[in-house]
Amino acid sequence: MIATPLVEVRDVRKAFGSFEALRGVDLDIGRGEKVALVGASGSGKSTLCRCINRLETVTSGTITFDGQPLPQEGRALADLRAQVGMVFQAFNLFPHFTALQNIALAPVRVRKVPRPEAEEEARELLARVGLADKANSYPAELSGGQQQRVAIARALAMHPQLMLFDEPTSALDPEMISEVLDVMSELADGGMTMLVVTHEMGFARHACDRVCFMDAGQIVEQAPPGEFFDNPRSERAKDFLSKLLHH
């Protein structure tokens, strides 16, 4: 690889008490690359995703972002997090702010963008996720799919270099999943660097450059989606995929 990857994960381990959620993970994410992180529940996908913006601290190993190791809690870490967008399974919109305020809040308070400018961009982002008419709605007035699209817009408002998606559609009703995946596909087409923890294999196959399969705290196999889904090499990946297809 000629250019340095945006994210480098090296031999990362993470223990919760006596349970080892991550057992020596190596992962590179190149600029503009879209990586899907798949695997059974409890395999460590979300933990790995959360370690990358240090919502979880690693027990050992290193993670670098843009060539720099992740800083300790404080100003420098806040600066780094401002460059990494995160979308949560539970949306986590701020319920006491409108959709527009949710999106404009961090640009105004963290990036110090003048409010009118931030609100104008927030409106553009809302239009981009198809919610131009919901600017003044509170999260409680929006459906799950709409809330998640606002959450994506909120993360994008910080102009992140990397977007982390932690099971963004797992809390949604089936009919709302596609509206969120559409927004994510558009983002992928636009060249955003993305790490997506997901159970949506269709999305992993069509929108991602690479699929990483995790099992028991390790990345067991990584390959381009076509190769992974049609010709999985490891037994565990074969087993995982066969269970998905047999519903």
């Binding site: 806040a78 401002a82 990494v84 995160m86 949560f88 986590n92 701020f94 809040l105 963290v110 910080m158």
Partner: peptide, 10 residues
């Protein structure tokens, strides 16, 4: 709520 705020760099 606190995780979302931290993830935004607050």
């Amino acid at each position: 709520q606190s995780e979302a705020a931290r993830a935004l760099g607050m």
